[in-house]
Computed example of a mutant assay.
Amino acid sequence: MNMPIYLDYGATTPLDPAVAAAMAPWGVDGFGNPHSAHLWGYKARAAVERAREQVAAMINAPTEAIAFTSGATESNNWALKGLLTAPGQTRRRIVTLATEHSSVLETAQYLASIGAQLSIVPVRGSGLVDLSDLERALGEDVALVSVMAVNNEIGVVQDLAAISQLAHGVGAVFHVDAAQGFGKVALDVEACGVDLLSLTAHKIYGPKGVGALYRRPYTVITPLLHGGGQEDGRSGTLATALIAGLGAAAAIAGDRMLADRDHALALRDRLLAALTVPHRVNGDLHQRWPGNLNLSFPGLVVPLIQQLPGLAISAGSACAAVTGRASHVLTAIGLDEAQAKASLRIGFGRFTTPDEIDSAAAQINAVVARHLAEMA
């Protein structure tokens, strides 16, 4: 059986062989608990601390501000729930965008169900937030502003520094979901004024099941997981191999950031040039991560995914695919449900080749042209 061309880098990325090599010593032989007070534990702990340094360096953070988690969903939950339930927290409102990941929106909605207030700010048709709309939503009762760095479905990059200024102007904490931005775009928590930042490994050629939360010193959040008190409040035995993989993936991404971006940009432009059928790019074409291309086809409302068996792509996030719902991101920027379900999210990256892009364009052209001809 021939495998389809993998163009779903937004859902997850292949494991980089160099990352796998960095993880290998911490499986069968390096099995020590990194919290144990003996040589096996010391060696594992050293690997964990090296990874902490590698992650911190990517966002210009102190190493002690990085806490390892199981991934961005846990980090987002910890950031929102931890801040709203922190001792002495008197503010009760969360402000976020309509296009945020479900792990932020659903966590915020849960908190609203138990007494918090929630303000969801719309975005423009470009997918970018109008800062004046955001400013109008803010007030002295806002505890947290949560905005994604790079959108997981349409790839747009929000102006974090400007949003931070608005949040801090009313005394709110600023949280960034950087699951899709970490290792792909420059992120500096000091320059951008970020107080909490969530990240994951498997979007940057690292393993699944590991991520981290950056917490600015003196930003108080309550633990999400209670127990042994590891990770300054995130309890649980650390997965040394996975953490080593996250660290290695971060270091490699730092070295390759410009090269990876240039490669993605060349592939993106090649695909757009090869499309001969009418199409629309969803989300701002310029203020975005170039490894994401979200397309809809004017007049076509037929779901296309099942008709492109040679391509591993999606119509939205992998999370939304499980439910069968139309993408809330695409409906938030003005598409109706049928248009959203007929759209394609195409993701490419480090291991995608020009030949694969050419093949993908040919397959999309053939399927869309056939449907348009049938409708004529």
Rank of each mutant, 00 (worst) to 15 (best):
H328L: 10
R52T: 03
A108M: 06
V147W: 01
V301N: 12
D159H: 08
I252P: 04
K184N: 01
Q165V: 11
A239K: 12
D336Y: 14
A273S: 14
A21C: 11
D8K: 13
A326L: 13
A273T: 08
S317V: 01
H101G: 04
G30V: 00
V121W: 05
L131I: 09
D130V: 08
A338W: 12
M148C: 13
L246K: 08
T12W: 12
N76Q: 00
Y205F: 14
R215Y: 03
G283Q: 08
S75R: 00
A201D: 10
A24L: 12
S126M: 06
G245L: 08
A22Q: 08
P303R: 14
G229N: 10
P217E: 10
G30L: 02
V28T: 13
V142C: 04
R93Q: 12
P207S: 11
S70R: 09
A320W: 05
A24H: 12
I357V: 14
G82V: 00
V48T: 03
A274Q: 13
W78K: 00
S343G: 15
P278I: 07
Q117V: 05
G125W: 04
A47P: 01
I5M: 07
P17W: 11
T99I: 10
L271N: 07
G169V: 03
T323P: 05
A172D: 05
A342W: 13
P17Y: 11
G254S: 11
E356I: 11
G155C: 06
A266G: 06
A20L: 14
L330M: 14
V210C: 06
A44D: 05
F174S: 00
P298N: 04
H35I: 03
I364T: 06
F182C: 03
S102M: 11
M58P: 00
A338H: 15
T323D: 10
M58W: 12
V322M: 13
F351Y: 14
A264Y: 04
L265Q: 13
A108P: 04
A178W: 02
I66W: 01
D130M: 11
Q363D: 03
L166H: 06
T352Q: 13
A172L: 05
D260V: 07
A239R: 14
S36L: 10
F68P: 03
L128C: 04
R288D: 00
C319R: 15
L160V: 02
C319Q: 15
P17C: 11
S164D: 02
A250C: 11
V55G: 07
T276N: 12
L344A: 11
A61M: 04
D177K: 00
P278Y: 06
R50P: 00
L213F: 00
G82Y: 00
G10Y: 03
S132M: 14
V170D: 06
V367L: 01
V19Q: 08
G324V: 10
R136A: 15
R270M: 13
N77M: 07
E337P: 05
A61F: 07
P278C: 06
L295E: 08
V104R: 01
K341E: 15
V28I: 12
Y42A: 14
V189R: 03
S198Y: 01
L285S: 15
I305G: 09
A274V: 09
R52F: 03
N2F: 05
E135F: 01
F68C: 07
L128Y: 00
V48L: 05
V121C: 04
